[in-house]
Amino acid sequence: MSERFQEVSGKLDMNKNGKLKKNMEPYLFLAPLLLILLVFLLVPIVKAAAMSFQYYYIVRPSADGHYFVGLENYQNLLADENFYNSVKVTVIYILVTVIGRYVLGFLSALLLNTQFKGRGLARALVIIPWAVPEVVACLVWMLMYDRDYGIINFLLNNAGMLSQNIAFLQDVKVALPAAMVVNIWKGFPFVAIMLLAGMQSISEDLFEAAEIDGASWIQKVRYIVIPGIKSVSTVVFLLLVIWTIKDYAIAYVLAKGGPSRATEILTIFIQQTAFKTFDFGKAAAAGMLMLLVSLVFTFFYFKAVNRGEEDV
């Protein structure tokens, strides 16, 4: 009896071991990834969430160290007119640059999708702004925007469009549009390349059929191209929004958030709150609000990506 039991249990163990080993296999591959996600992402996010409810001045530690203050950081934030300013600037910055990059990218993709000599070269050249490092892009545009010897003032002057030279990045009214132009310049190639990939996947038959029916170019764009790139368009649009929320370097390097906070997008506000006033609690609170907004768009992004996969 006991012998038989042992045998059975031995067999069971072996089965269990065999199965266990098989189940463990994926986790051997995934262990380093899971560790990184845990240590470098989960821990910091939990820490940031905690900090957003704490008194957390790094240069003025109180006797109690960092202590719980409830919603105080969020209240301070909502009472801070500079926060509202940065939200307003961010919304304008996102709206204008996303639409700008999208429209310019769409038109470029349409052009690059037609047949002509040198198309391959044009496709390669259009990518270059995307490849230029952000900081470098900003420096070049600063030189071009210069009031006294910048090429843009020179060209506008020659075209008779200026009564006096403009200090693009030092003028409260012009600085934000000037920064947005740099962003659009740097970002439209990405849209162009993605939409072009979408356009290339549209079946030639559709165009041939339209040709036979005598459709005009505009009709082809309206009834074939636009519906054909719908899913990639949605993904590109949402990616642009998500990335622009995170954007920092262009506005910061160009104008340091100034003049008079005219270019102070939310990321600059957070960076300055943390590293200029050292109020890490308030900076974390602003960061958490930004994360929530990002996650809303991410939700739609996933929905769009999944829909795209189902279509295949």
Partner: peptide
Amino acid sequence: LSYVVLTTQVLPGSLLMIPLYII
């Protein structure tokens, strides 16, 4: 896990920077 990997791409650097600076 796939969702987590994709979501981490949208986390704002400005947010992560604050706790990472302390850690």
